[in-house]
Design a binder for these strands. Sequence first.
DNA 1: ACGGGTCTTGACGAGTTCCTGACGCCCCTG
DNA 2: CAGGGGCGTCAGGAACTCGTCAAGACCCGT
Lengths: 221, 221
Amino acid sequence: MKVLVVDDDATLRRTLAIGLHAEDHEVLIVADGRSALQALREDRPDIVVLDLGLPDLTGVEVLRQLRTWSTIPVVVLSARAESAEKVQALDLGADDYVTKPFGMEELLARIRAAARRAGSDIPLLEAGDLVIDLPARRVTKAGAVVRLTPTEWGLLEMLVRTPGRLVGQQDLLHEVWGPAYGRETNYLRVYVGGLRKKLEDDPSRPRHLITEPGMGYRFEI
Amino acid sequence: MKVLVVDDDATLRRTLAIGLHAEDHEVLIVADGRSALQALREDRPDIVVLDLGLPDLTGVEVLRQLRTWSTIPVVVLSARAESAEKVQALDLGADDYVTKPFGMEELLARIRAAARRAGSDIPLLEAGDLVIDLPARRVTKAGAVVRLTPTEWGLLEMLVRTPGRLVGQQDLLHEVWGPAYGRETNYLRVYVGGLRKKLEDDPSRPRHLITEPGMGYRFEI
DNA sequence: ACGGGTCTTGACGAGTTCCTGACGCCCCTG
DNA sequence: CAGGGGCGTCAGGAACTCGTCAAGACCCGT
């Protein structure tokens, strides 16, 4: 099992690495938020131990971004015991929250618990001849890589995150264009049209990117 | 969502019950281990909050027995902060371990987190050959997807949210068409008619979308 | 400054959905 | 038995939504 440790405290990193190694885990270590996100995309760890106090991005921001494309277990470490921060992290999708100082035995047990629960993660979504890899931000159609613009990707990601489920037009606009948007449904029409042209066999008769008139769109497997 | 609280401290029970109720959970409360196991088998809660300090069985024993036949999320409460006990509980299958004293906000967040991880089971409503998936906004009849217009969906959602219960005509108009509406019962006749045509085997003799003359409509499973 | 790609914006036809009134039916009541 | 209220059905036109296109604005790296 591959564990990614994100922490800027060298001592703690070493201790953790030793403890995790003793349990036969492969350990990856990074010290800042950007490297963490990169390692998450590229190395596909099975579980993450994430310190909230990072030099560049906050741990919370890392968590938020991670949760847009992955559901892997995250155990948060923090020096702060404040309730508000715990609540925030947990509601953002953290699986556990451990306050420093902590016993190594306990942390390892919590990691075991989080890993045990780890449901079958679905990193790849296959729909016909489409393969969508959220972490890698990569779409292939019949084996060929499809180039998407950032906006197109944001839209597709939002739809693919909940396959089969209807996503409201306002939800899409809020998420992809920002909270200030909500009435610009013409944007959606344009970009869904673009995605269909790139992804559907017959863009005029879409099988995956389905319109629900008056409500929103859905990605059908 | 049904929450079982197992604790022998009356004050804590009350606080928890209030907090959980505020989040729209149904709360079951028992004070000892035997009642806990019985409630787990009979009432099938969706999540358990389990205090380790119980008068008869130890909480650990309850957990051990529970895990022989169920994987529902368990959040353990304990007055002891000793690492060994945490490790034991977590390795026995507890999903989280909270040490007293704790903030109610934090506990509720941890309960939400535990429930979220487990609660990927979708609340589907099945009525004959109809399957209604509220979150996904999807209705299938005998496996085939049924397309609904926004108004039809609004109406159906309103009725399905309380299966078997009568919903008044004014309630429906207020909710689906807006607060300004209330006397336009002809709208209801038209759209219920449309829904019956799409959903009922014999629209002229509806089995699910039932009219209660003079009062409103009811969705019968 | 230039050029390629990306994003915004408006406009149009085609298709769908919504509203509305009219009609006939049933049941209940006087 | 007649009257009335509530219900289901139908169909037309108004209003809306969608897909598409194209022009212009914007943002890069060269």
